[in-house]
């Protein structure tokens, strides 16, 4: 247990952009702590000093409270800093700055369903085969059109996701049925997956290991089981894995948790 990297604060961060997110959360919490403690000291002081007791009278005069104005302006200034200095840059990178072609990103389609994550790899040709809802079936969860030549080498995985470290990953998120939300705690990635839309997210892992991908949006009875294994591998290991995959439009057997 004590060797588990998970504890009572952040889960481990293995993404490139995650540190920025952690930093802003840390900074905000220090800011909150300072405000709360400062405010609390004044509060407790008043509670004791100004308790009703014989011989003590309330004063009609209101305190000038210059310090409170200073504090309020201080709060405002700091909030502007949080907003413009910390939050917006991280966000715009997270949402508006996809990896460039020379970074050699790897694209994977994600098809969410009640209650599983399906991953559609383009395979060796780097091109996705055609898909259509009409083809979706128990043995073709992503609805791959098997008559399409591009589909021949595509790989479809159910609740298992393999990816190389140090290479940008772009997930194209779609949902078959209801709204889900992809949540990769160690990657500091969360994005609602909305039927009728295709939404991209991207990230780069800096460490290998076995992690989890979950669902953060209530999507039905077994929402809590909608967990996919996430295996981050060395690039070489990943290439090996990819070669071993027989192309499929189907799913694989559930694997026991290691």
């Amino acid at each position: 247990m004590d060797t588990s990297p998970y504890g009572w604060w952040f889960p481990p961060n293995i993404s490139m952009h995650g540190a920025g997110i952690d930093r802003i959360i840390d900074v905000v919490h220090w800011f909150m702590a300072v405000l709360f403690v400062g405010w609390g000291i004044f509060f407790v002081y008043c509670l004791i000093k100004f308790r009703a007791r014989p011989g003590h009278q309330a004063s009609y005069q209101l305190p000038k409270a210059k310090i409170s104005k200073v504090a309020e302006v201080g709060v405002l200034v700091f909030e502007v800093f949080l907003l413009v200095g910390l939050s917006m840059p991280v966000w715009s990178k997270y949402r508006n700055d996809p990896p460039k072609a020379e970074e050699n990103p790897m694209e994977i389609r994600v098809v969410a369903e009640q209650f599983a994550w399906n991953f559609h790899y383009p395979g060796a040709d780097g091109k996705f085969g055609r898909t259509h809802p009409r083809f979706m079936a128990a043995d073709n969860l992503i609805g791959l059109d098997r008559s399409d030549p591009l589909a021949a080498d595509d790989i479809a995985l159910n609740n298992k996701f393999y990816m190389p470290k140090d290479r940008p990953i772009v997930l194209r998120l779609t949902s078959k049925d209801v709204i889900h939300s992809i949540w990769i705690p160690v990657m500091r990635v969360k994005q609602d997956v909305i039927p009728g839309m295709e939404i991209p997210v991207w990230f780069t892992a800096t460490q290998t290991g076995h992690y989890q991908i979950g669902c953060a949006q209530l999507c039905g009875n077994n929402h809590f089981t909608m967990i996919s294994d996430l295996f981050v591998q060395e690039p070489e290991e990943f290439r090996q894995w990819q070669l071993e995959q027989k192309s499929s439009g189907g799913e694989e057997e559930e694997e026991e948790d290691a």
């Binding site: 952040f10 909150m32 709360f36 917006m88």
Partner: peptide, 28 residues
């Protein structure tokens, strides 16, 4: 009186949720 610090905690913890970058981790 107890309302004051309780509401303060509620209000303060709204701050990180209002900042989109922090909300990535904290949302839902």
């Amino acid at each position: 009186l107890a309302f004051l610090p309780m509401f303060a905690i509620g209000g303060l913890t709204g701050l990180p949720l209002g900042l989109t970058a922090a909300d990535i981790h904290l949302h839902d």
